[in-house]
């Protein structure tokens, strides 16, 4: 093979795989979104009807969007704050046991989601759950965690935070490693306390990490599916929990596509979600850029 052709041959596998499993499905689903198709018969072209239905008829789309925003708005700051504090504490106060504690905090992130769903179902059961048993010990009445709208949202938020804060911690630890110890030593000589160093040195210098974790958290937040789905996946549970309180946009898309087998409508929902994520990311970058300018 000639020297000119060799590099192309080397990078070809990636592009072939991307075309087959990335670009083709994206374009195919875009085409499907303009049709009515149950996956078996012929797909009938319906133009923008599916998109019109999303925005004018589907109350679940707006409800799922609102639920997603609520879960995202509450869980993201908590998991970032917890990850940041955990990383800082491990770096500053647990130098000897840092590796072990790091692993313990990271374990939830690599735990199988199905197992997490079952564990949380059992923990938050109304009658026999360990959480209610603990509340009863304190003299508090049992809560129907998986039967009330806000209680089930709280459980999902708890699941998301518990699962993801370890990942945030690792991100912040990598950022902290890049900050020179000399800065902290100089601040200490100038009389700065731990909190002063944290707010005046650590946080400003972790800015690139903040941008990364906030952006990825927002994108992942819009794609939220596993946690609420697994919590309410048994036969007698309604999709999206009580009052559809934890039905997210991806769950709505999944329901339309793979339960009702409306592949055209499901694809339209997916593209609407794509537009929302793109708009949110753009807004986020604009905000970050403005702050940078200031």
């Amino acid at each position: 093979m000639s020297k000119k052709k060799a590099p192309y041959a080397m990078i070809a596998p990636y592009f072939i795989l991307y075309l087959a499993f990335g670009l083709f499905p994206i374009l195919f689903s875009l085409g499907v979104s303009f049709t009515s198709w149950d996956g078996i018969g012929e797909a009938a072209f319906v133009g923008l009807k599916n998109y019109k239905r999303v925005f004018t008829q589907d109350k679940f789309f707006y409800k799922s969007m609102l639920n997603t925003l609520i879960l995202l708005a509450i869980s993201t700051p908590i998991q970032i704050a917890l990850g940041l504090f955990m990383a800082t504490f491990l770096k500053d106060f647990f130098k000897k046991t840092r590796n072990g504690l790091q692993l313990i905090n990271f374990l939830p992130y690599i735990t199988t989601p199905v197992a997490v769903g079952i564990i949380f179902q059992l923990m938050f059961d109304w009658k026999s759950g360990v959480i209610n048993a603990f509340l009863n010990l304190l003299g508090i009445e049992s809560v129907y965690w998986l039967g009330n709208a806000w209680a089930s949202r709280a459980v999902v938020i708890f699941m998301i935070v518990w699962k993801n804060y370890g990942y945030m911690m690792i991100m912040f630890l990598s950022g902290l490693a890049a900050i020179s110890d000399e800065l902290y030593e100089a601040a200490k000589i100038d009389g700065a306390r731990w909190w002063d160093s944290f707010t005046k040195i650590t946080i400003p210098l972790l800015r690139p990490i903040f941008i990364f974790v906030i952006t990825t958290s927002v994108i992942n937040g819009f794609k939220l599916f596993d946690e609420p789905q697994l919590l309410f996946n048994s036969v007698s549970q309604p999709i999206g929990g009580p009052d559809r309180a934890v039905m997210t946009v991806v769950m709505r898309f999944y329901e339309a596509s793979f339960r009702s087998f409306e592949f055209g409508y499901g694809s339209a929902l997916a593209y609407c979600l794509f537009l929302v994520i793109a708009a949110a990311s753009l807004l986020l970058f604009k905000l970050i850029d403005r702050k940078k300018g200031e």
């Binding site: 026999s128 048994s234 007698s236």
Partner: peptide
């Protein structure tokens, strides 16, 4: 009638 979820582990 008790408050268990139908077909649940409980």
């Amino acid at each position: 009638v008790d408050v268990l979820d139908f077909s649940s582990a409980e």
